[in-house]
Design a binder for these strands. Structure first.
Lengths: 135, 135, 135, 135
DNA sequence: GTGGTCTAGACCACG
DNA sequence: GTGGTCTAGACCACG
């Protein structure tokens, strides 16, 4: 499982782990029933503390995204079917975008300004990522 | 001056104030030379701590956006010409959008997904705001 | 032997097994001298770890409820007469009820509240179980 | 705030705190807007670790029972009106009782047995608590 | 070996 | 002073 932590981010490490696990499940990279790395494994891999990973897993468990089986490990919850996962993924992405639109709104930008900036930034981003995805 | 604080946001209150003051200046709602409310006034109005407002003003002062004149009050800096303000405004908006694109990237969304979601959410947002801006 | 495990319960699996074996003996579903499934059988049937079943059997053995005969298997203890079994059964049930009363106490509910809730919930439960027991 | 911890209980300390805070709110001992003791205060009072209390508060916050105000402290959520609180209280008590009935069910006790035991244990408990409440 | 809980203590942002 | 996060490390029940 490839998780990347940005240690200078405002978002706490445990929340970064949560987000990425959700995204990987939603993307089908982690499928229902798949075992997640053990807390100790992931902590070692990311060079972070055991408790930080445990915190992330506990919250994912509570949210029903993963299930914990005593003494055996942690697994992606079985409940989610494909449609549900696609929905999950979609909601996460929408959430991010809406948050930025809401923020722009709060700061009093006009619809025209936002629309223009959106298109410009998206184009720039697509250009940047074409390159990096080909690597 | 109408500032709205979201107390459940992850963004610190002082940063919310800074963002909004910058936006109001950039939008021309606050013009060079205009006086800002005193720290005490704004703190009372927003029902937040004196130090929180002081923190926001101090950073805006450091950034040269406002100037503090001892015993007289706080004013929008005279330095900024129109071009500078437009630039300021633009940078802020870009920052918001780029942050959301970076986030989407981090969570492993494909460029196609992001582009599609961007257009969809922007359209939705434009529709919502047509109505509300006519009020 | 029909044992049902609730994997999301706070009660450890081995304790769930113990409880249910005791209950079955007390209820006369398992009689003195009856053979219990082997540890391996039960573990396979319940899809749980061998050691978990072994733990439950070991404790039941220590308590004198079952006897283990090397190479032959595990059997319900002969010692228990009817009165003893009735007592066993009663104690178990009392334990459950007292635990819930103690919990209510801990959380500061008044005797009136508890008494009222007890009667209401018991009535509800009796109604539910009339139906299901006729099946 | 009077919270009692049973350190030999199966229930984790943080969960005991959560339960009791909920109960106190539901009982009206803690009212909407009331400030809870700070994490440090409660930890000192109960002679437990800062983090254990923080864990309990974090979960109560997430559940919307309390709200955390940065740098100021933690308060009972305002949302809850009297009816809601009574409901909360009722649900908690029901939950306890139903869990014990479900447990009895699982262990194969007949409705008659359970009904008899319920009345007997409730009477015993009422007798015990008459005395102790007069103290 | 696996997750769960707790302690002790640190540093931080925020107010 | 207040809560939030993280580390380091321990012990435990469970499997």
């Amino acid at each position: 499982m490839e998780i990347r932590i940005e240690s200078d981010s405002r978002i706490p490490i445990y929340a970064q782990i949560e987000d990425q696990v959700r995204a990987m499940i939603a993307a089908g990279q982690l499928r229902p029933g798949n075992q997640l790395p053990t807390i100790r494994q992931l902590a070692a891999e990311l060079r972070i503390n055991y408790n930080t990973v445990a915190h992330a897993y506990m919250e994912l468990d509570r949210a029903g995204v993963i299930t914990t089986q005593r003494g055996r490990g942690t697994f992606v919850a079985e409940l989610l079917d494909k449609a549900e996962m696609a929905q999950l993924r979609d909601r996460q992405l929408c959430g991010i975008l809406r948050a930025s639109l809401k923020e722009a709104n709060r700061l009093g930008y006009s619809t025209d300004e936002v629309a223009a900036a959106f298109h410009r930034e998206l184009s720039r981003w697509l250009r940047e990522n074409e390159t990096s995805e080909e690597e």
